[in-house]
Each structure stands twice: as structure tokens, then as C-alpha cells.
Nucleic acid binder design. Sequence first.
DNA 1: CAACTCGTAACAGAATAAGTTGCGGTTAGC
DNA 2: GCTAACCGCAACTTATTCTGTTACGAGTTG
Lengths: 142, 142
Amino acid sequence: MSPSSRLTVAIHILTLLAHEASGEPVTSEYIAGSVGTNPVVIRRLLAMLRKSKLVRSQGGPGGGWQLVVPARGITLRDVYRAVESEALFPLHASTPNPRCPVGRTIQAALAGRYGEARLALERDLERTTIADLLQEVTRLAR
Amino acid sequence: MSPSSRLTVAIHILTLLAHEASGEPVTSEYIAGSVGTNPVVIRRLLAMLRKSKLVRSQGGPGGGWQLVVPARGITLRDVYRAVESEALFPLHASTPNPRCPVGRTIQAALAGRYGEARLALERDLERTTIADLLQEVTRLAR
DNA sequence: CAACTCGTAACAGAATAAGTTGCGGTTAGC
DNA sequence: GCTAACCGCAACTTATTCTGTTACGAGTTG
């Protein structure tokens, strides 16, 4: 799996928004300063999070980003679904041989197993909320 | 996660070896014919599976590959560990800002959660063996 | 010794991710 | 209305990874 760090950065963003939840919107440039990257990278991820109705944006001076859902109501599974659309385990790059009994059927057999594995992963991610992480982060930063 | 199809192909290989378990070694070229790829790709994966003591190879005419462990004793977790060494969810590409309370601690907070998520995934993969898949494949191919 | 098979390095091409620049659109406040 | 501060988004570059391919040496069988 050549996963990406999208999930990590998205969680970072949401935790930061929960941390700075003073009512004031937070700019993508400020978030980028905490993450250590370019504001456009942050805005790309925020756009995905907005599509899942987790955050909202506002333009103009004093604008920026805010949580729509309270941190206690956002699980890591929500974030995972918002930013990782691809399959957990991709099937073959090239089609297996349809004249081989194994090649002809292995993908169908694997699809079900992979689906269960993804569910198991998501069930675990569901156990943690952004509020949990914020609490852990403030404990560690003390 | 930019995962790869390594797990899928490795499972395919092992299922095929279990299917052709007539005592005769199976060549990487034959396996490649079932998977639909190049023999070198197959040998690369087989080398990883051998490192985990799941298969053995033999050179020369009549040579090829065989299972070392019976199909009932190989779980998808074993295969996963053999071929997917990287982290399930990578951390930040660039280091977060150490002067930010969130940036300074988020990676430590996430490491534990990611570890649990990986365990949950592996526990699920452990439920299925190559023998299970072979049975499913022969049922589908009927 | 001849055919066969693995072992592995080296390279090419494609896909993906991360980072960057640029610019248009919108908003707040003077 | 003008200006400054933001977002929105397309386009491009660069780095990395994955897949596929060629090539060739080493070992084995008969």
C-alpha cells in the first residue's frame, strides 16, 4: 500500500481547529504553519472535509475555517472516509487469466474478504474522536 | 494510502500453489500465466514469501515453487506481514511545527491509534486462511 | 554438457503525492 | 467603491513508488 499522509494531515487540521475553537475562523495559512506545508495543500484537504460537512469556510478578512460538527462528534472513521476514497487493498493491476480456475475467481473471492477487513478497520477507527485526540495532545504538550 | 496490489497477487500465488499441490513444483512462469504478469514480478513476491518461510524454491529442470506450510496454516495476516512492510497510515511528509502545541504532539498521539488500527485490521485478516480461499475459489469456479 | 529455472540487478513507463505558483472571486471594513 | 485579506482552483514541477521488462549469472537435473 502506497498510502498517503492525507489521513494524518486531515486529523491534524481538525485537531487544530478544535484546539483553536474560540469562535474565530482559522486561516489555511495558519494551519499550514502548524502542519509544516503549503496552504494550498491544506485547502485541498479542507475541501474534502467540507464535502463531508465537517468544516465550513468563509472568505475575506477575518475569514478562515471552522468546525461544523463538535470535536466529540467526529470519529477517525469519518475523517478516513472523507479523505481516503481508494480501496484499502487494490486488486490485480492486470486482469488475471480467465482460463485458469484460480485466476478466474480469485478477485471475486477476495472482494468479500477485503470488504470485511475494511469494515474491521473502520470499526476500530470509530472508537476515537477528534476530542479524544485533542485531550491526548494537550496532555502531551503540558 | 497508496497501497499496491502486492497483497492481492501474493494471495493469488499462494492459492494457486495450494491448488496445484500435487507434489510437483510450480514455475514462476506458470504462475505468471495465471496472474497475467511477468515472471520476475512473481519471483519478487515469492522471494518475500520465502523470507517469511511460507514457500521454498528449487532450481533446474522440474524446479519451481512449493508451499512449506499447509494452506490451512497460512492466514491473510501472514501474507500481509510478508509483503506489506510499510505503515498502514504514514505520518506527515514534512515535520510539523514544534512550536505549536498540536504540531509538536500530534504524531505521538497518532502513533498509538494507528498501531491499534493496524492490530484490528490484522486480527480480521487472521480469520481467513489460504485453505478458506481455495475452497471459495473452487466453489466459484464450479 | 545442455536445457531449464531461479536470483537479481538495471532500466523504462505510468501513476500518485506533495509542493508551488498564479490568478480570479468573495468578503469585511474603511 | 476601494483595498486588503481570504478562499477556490487550475496548472505545473518534482519525487517517489509500482509495475513491467530485459538481461545475465548461478545452480540443478538428467
